[in-house]
């Protein structure tokens, strides 16, 4: 099973067609934003260097989670509108096109879970392999145990069912950091703490075999803290850790992408700036092997126009790679395979 989660920075239908520069496009990583996404999500040979990481295969994703999927409206848990359904339909259809072309559609056919508004003009997209999971999964924008949504963007959950096992896919987008050094992580940390009072995320309350995945843009990491009014350091992940959520992404793994190269910094901080993205899991029965990464699509970008002789684009072409990556997103994708 492979899950890819990607914050795609306000993705809408127009953005899918945005083309890359004429000198980047020949590298073979994609003609436009949609094409670029598909090559990563569907395990294309353009990223064969990533599929060589321990535990990763070149299989297409079984589940693709999109953070910052754009929609009209702002009423949480209500139906999406505007560009949202055409966008997720286009992405889903593109994944099916690739599966048909590669003649793997006997193993991979995709549908999307009905998105619900999570915050102002935003939702989470969940596309899944419907040959593995049942059709029409239940979806909901979650409330906490006080029956309140978590602001500004409440978590979104799709419950995918395979046989007797439910896989809860939860996409989140925490608020950004704000304020002075001692308190800048307060907004996202308080957000993550509230995840600990969302009943649907409590694995101890499961009444049937359930695997949980909480993923997305946390805008902080387990090592982040802020100092409260009593001088105490406050962290965010305590309850999730108490519930035995885990992540194999090392704490502090940079994942947010700079808009300009910081030449004075060593790799990868010359093109990455913060450790904001994470993918937490809790299995009802631990699988045999789990591999999980933040995929560095900038440092690992190659010119694959000659497939037998791919050439690394870092460091000589870093400016072009970074500028073109910014047309896709300001976050790197994450992957888990088990």
């Amino acid at each position: 099973m492979k899950i890819v989660c990607w914050n795609l920075k306000n993705i809408g239908q127009t953005k899918l067609g945005n083309a890359f520069t004429n000198t980047f496009t020949p590298y073979g990583l994609g003609n436009n934003v949609l094409d670029y996404m598909m090559k990563l999500v569907m395990g294309d040979a353009a990223w064969s260097n990533l599929w060589g990481l321990a535990g990763l295969s070149n299989n297409p994703a079984d589940i693709f989670v999109i953070i910052e999927l754009k929609t009209g409206g702002h009423n949480k848990n209500q139906a999406v509108s505007g560009t949202c359904l055409p966008t997720i339909t286009a992405i889903t259809n593109a994944m099916n096109q690739v599966a048909v072309t590669r003649n793997i559609n006997n193993n991979y056919q995709y549908s999307f879970a009905t998105p619900k508004i999570t915050g102002n003009h935003e939702t989470v997209g969940v596309i899944f392999n419907n040959l593995v999971f049942n059709a029409n999964p239940a979806t909901i924008s979650l409330r906490d145990n006080n029956n309140a949504y978590i602001n500004p963007r409440t978590p979104f959950m799709a419950s995918l069912v395979e046989g007797t096992t439910t896989t809860k896919i939860v996409g989140i987008h925490a608020p950004p950091v704000k304020g002075g050094a001692n308190v800048r992580y307060r907004p996202p940390i308080d957000y993550v703490r509230k995840l600990g009072i969302v009943g649907e995320l409590d694995p101890t309350a499961a009444v049937s075999p359930t695997d949980y995945f909480i993923m997305g843009d946390f805008n902080c990491n387990p090592g982040s803290s802020y100092t409260n009014g009593f001088g105490v350091a406050v962290t965010g992940f305590n309850q999730l850790l108490a519930w035995n959520y885990n992540s194999l992404i090392p704490n502090g793994t940079l994942s947010s992408v700079r808009t300009r190269v910081a030449n004075v910094n060593p790799q990868p901080s010359n093109y990455l700036s913060e450790a904001y993205d994470n993918l937490l899991y809790n299995f009802s029965v631990a699988p045999g092997g789990i591999s999980e990464y933040v995929l560095d699509l900038i440092g690992n970008a190659r010119n694959v126009s000659q497939p037998l002789n791919p050439v690394a684009l870092y460091p000589n072409n870093l400016v072009a790679v970074l500028n073109n990556y910014n047309k896709v997103s300001d976050h790197l994708p994450m992957i888990i395979e088990y």
Partner: peptide, 13 residues
């Protein structure tokens, strides 16, 4: 369309 240079998707619009 921007001239496609890869196999894959391109938009005519």
């Amino acid at each position: 369309t921007q001239v496609p240079m890869n196999g894959g998707f391109f938009y005519l619009s």
